[in-house]
């Protein structure tokens, strides 16, 4: 299987198999005009199977959101047909407007124009807590 390589943009590699569409939707890639390729179940030496997303444009990529959705991915930044940077992502310390607090008693449920902020409080167990009410995400 052959997908045209990209000139300027991103290759999001090592996405956990099955996660590509979730990331595609969450990052709003559907709204882009440029070419976006989604490769699912590509062969991976490490995990057997992986997904890959290729974006043929230098968009403003929200790396915190991406790291939150899948901390294992690698982002290759491509310029003039060459990979100029490989970014290994990790869980971000803080995510803003990525997830919504589900606690109905939380101030974020009623206050106007308030960012939804979650803080990583336990790296090991990957626990994020709402900045305001401290409810854990998930």
């Amino acid at each position: 299987m052959n997908i045209d390589s990209i000139k300027n943009g991103y290759v999001i590699d090592h996405i956990k198999a099955g996660n590509a569409m979730i990331i595609y939707d969450a990052l709003g890639l559907r709204e882009l005009d440029c070419q976006v390729a989604i490769i699912s179940n590509a062969k991976s030496k490490k995990t057997g199977k992986k997904d890959i997303i290729k974006i043929d444009e230098n968009i403003d990529l929200d790396l915190d959101k991406l790291g939150f959705l899948d901390p294992e991915v690698t982002v290759n930044i491509v310029k003039n047909d060459e990979i100029i940077e490989k970014k290994k992502l990790s869980l971000p310390e803080k995510i803003i407007n990525v997830a919504k607090c589900k606690n109905p008693r939380c101030i974020t449920s009623i206050e106007r124009d308030l960012d939804q902020i979650f803080i990583l409080t336990d790296k090991e167990k990957q626990v994020y807590r709402c900045k305001y009410c401290e409810s854990s995400l998930k």
Binding site: S109, E111, C130
Partner: peptide, 10 residues
């Protein structure tokens, strides 16, 4: 005092 959690932080 506020019924919503986190209101004083806001």
């Amino acid at each position: 005092r506020h019924p919503k959690e986190g209101a004083p932080l806001v």
